[in-house]
Simulated scan of single mutants.
Amino acid sequence: MGYDMIFLPGNQYSDATVQVAKDYPDIAFAVLNGATTLPTDNITSILPDADQIGYMAGALAGLMSKTNVLGFIGGMEIDTTKAKLAGFEKAAKAINPDITVLSAYAGSFNDVAKGMELANGMISQKADVFFGDASAVDSGARQAIDAANGSGEIAIFDIGQPADLVALGQNPCLIGSVVTDNAGMLKLAMQDVEAGTFGGKTIYGSFDNQCLTVGTFNDDLVSADVQTSYMEYINQMAAGTFPG
């Protein structure tokens, strides 16, 4: 085929990759968000560290909540989303043991209306900081949060991923983001190809390889003191000492 490596930009390509890779053993196949059971001698999965993503969002949520109730909306009940939820809850409760986390799955990644419905239900139960892992469903949740805040003081917040949504000027309710560097993870896979060590493993984007980073804060909503405390927790996460 003339290629050293082929990049597949999503788990939906996993089955096709397995079928084709058998016929091209000398080509490296890198699958973004591929399952940890996917890798073979010439297939590597590339995944952001779901535990660390959950910790990053949970720490900020724990610092920002006034009601002690958080909301988490997932798309499908898959392992990576469940890990993010577990990390989110663990980190938030490490900061504030009185935190309660409400969670729900939309059963979809593109049902905007379902995101609005789930967020409204959690808002009615006093959730005031949200984090989601549901793509377009998250957009619906943020629409509901913005509507609940209205034109007055913003008191219900959302934490974005995987891009720096505050810097992109998206919804007013956003206070920060957990940013994933997919290009950085792909570079790690390319380095493995060059070194002859590609395949048979999952490459995780993490603090250690700088493929997970803190996005821009919304300075109008997140005080300097909270930002300082949050970055202290981030440093502890990088050192492996938080949330314990």
Results as ranks from 00 to 15, higher is better:
Asp164Tyr: 05
Asp138Lys: 05
Gln125Asp: 10
Asp128Gly: 05
Ile159Asp: 09
Gly121Ala: 06
Asn149His: 09
Ala134Pro: 01
Ile154Asp: 10
Glu153Asn: 11
Asp133Glu: 14
Gly160Ala: 13
Ala136Arg: 08
Gly121Asp: 02
Ser135Thr: 13
Asp133Tyr: 10
Gln125Trp: 02
Gly160His: 07
Gln143Ala: 14
Met122Arg: 04
Ala163Leu: 12
Ala127Phe: 01
Pro162Val: 12
Ala148Arg: 07
Pro162Glu: 12
Ala127Lys: 06
Asp158Arg: 01
Gly121Asn: 13
Gly160Ile: 07
Ile123Asn: 03
Ile156Arg: 13
Ser151Leu: 10
Asn120Cys: 00
Gln143Phe: 00
Asp133Met: 13
Gly132Lys: 06
Gln143Cys: 01
Val137Ala: 13
Asp164Val: 08
Ala144Leu: 11
Asn149Phe: 06
Gly152Ala: 07
Asp146His: 04
Asn149Glu: 01
Asn149Leu: 07
Phe131Ser: 02
Phe131Gly: 04
Asp133Arg: 05
Ile145Arg: 06
Lys126Tyr: 05
Asp133Ala: 14
Met122Asn: 06
Asp133Ser: 14
Gly140Asp: 10
Phe131Asp: 06
Ala119Leu: 00
Ala119Lys: 02
Asp128Ile: 00
Ala144Thr: 10
Gln161Ser: 13
Asp138Tyr: 09
Asp164Ile: 09
Ile145Trp: 06
Asp164Trp: 01
Gly140Ala: 10
Ala119Glu: 04
Gly140Cys: 04
Gly132Met: 11
Glu153Gln: 12
Asp146Leu: 05
Glu153Ser: 15
Ser135Asn: 14
Met122Asp: 01
Ala141His: 05
Ala148Gly: 04
Ser124Ile: 03
Ser139Trp: 07
Ala136Gln: 14
Ser151Met: 09
Ala127Gln: 01
Ile159Asn: 09
Asn149Lys: 08
Met122Pro: 00
Ala134Trp: 05
Val137Ser: 12
Ser135Asp: 15
Ser135Cys: 05
Asp138Ala: 14
Gly160Gln: 08
Asp146Tyr: 01
Ala148Glu: 14
Ile145Leu: 05
Gly150Asn: 11
Asp133Thr: 15
Gln143Lys: 10
Ile159Pro: 03
Asn120Glu: 10
Asp158Val: 02
Ala155Phe: 09
Pro162Gln: 09
Val129Cys: 06
Asp146Lys: 08
Asp146Ser: 08
Gly150Ala: 08
Phe157Val: 06
Gly152Asn: 02
Ser124Phe: 03
Gly160Cys: 10
Ala141Tyr: 06
Glu153Met: 09
Ser139Ala: 12
Asp164Lys: 00
Ser135Pro: 04
Ser151Glu: 15
Phe131Lys: 01
Ala155Tyr: 09
Ala155Ser: 15
Ala163Met: 10
Asn120His: 03
Ser139Leu: 14
Ala141Leu: 15
Arg142Ala: 14
Ile123Phe: 02
Ser139Gly: 15
Ala155Cys: 07
Ser139Phe: 11
Asp138Leu: 08
Gln143Glu: 15
Val129Leu: 00
Asp138His: 10
Ala127Gly: 05
Ile154Phe: 00
